[in-house]
Amino acid sequence: MVQHDLSATGGERASAVRTCVGCRQRTLAAELLRVVARESESSGFAVVPDPRRRLSGRGAWLHPTPECLGLAVRRRAFGRALRVTGHPDTAALDQLVGSTEQ
């Protein structure tokens, strides 16, 4: 179900609202980074950023901050949100966001 933020003037749809898998806060999709799971040769799945929001497959949304990335990794939220088994590799996100947590 797509949820939209209604503007105060006229009730028109302004933009989509999504939930961050790290902190679980709902915010505008424009403020979040979309991520998708891709199969990797060695470790099963890797979580990769989709800044243009064009990659196929199920996506998850994340604030592009080290805090939210760390929370999502600790809670193992990527596996549930992206519906993949195992512990997906988040090295690409660590590099993009600048996190030091694994």
Rank of each mutant, 00 (worst) to 15 (best):
F78Q: 02
S7T: 15
V47G: 02
T19G: 06
E39Y: 00
D89K: 03
L33S: 06
L32T: 07
D5C: 08
R83A: 11
D89A: 07
S15L: 09
G59M: 01
A91E: 13
A81F: 06
A60V: 02
Q95S: 13
G70W: 04
Q3R: 14
L28I: 07
R38S: 12
Q3V: 14
G22H: 08
A91V: 14
G57M: 01
S43H: 13
R26M: 07
E12S: 09
C20D: 09
S40R: 14
S40L: 09
L62W: 01
E101V: 15
R74Q: 14
M1F: 09
A81D: 03
Q3E: 13
R53F: 01
L33Q: 07
S7A: 15
T100Q: 13
R75W: 08
R52C: 02
H63G: 00
R26K: 11
T9A: 11
T65M: 04
S15H: 10
L28T: 12
L6S: 06
G79S: 12
R80W: 12
A29T: 12
Q102H: 12
A29K: 13
D89R: 07
V2P: 11
R58C: 05
D89T: 04
R13Q: 10
A8S: 13
E41W: 10
V84N: 07
R74F: 06
R26I: 03
G79V: 09
P49S: 03
V35A: 09
L62P: 02
Q3H: 12
S40Y: 04
L55C: 02
R76F: 04
D94H: 13
S7D: 15
R75S: 12
Q3D: 13
V73N: 00
A46H: 06
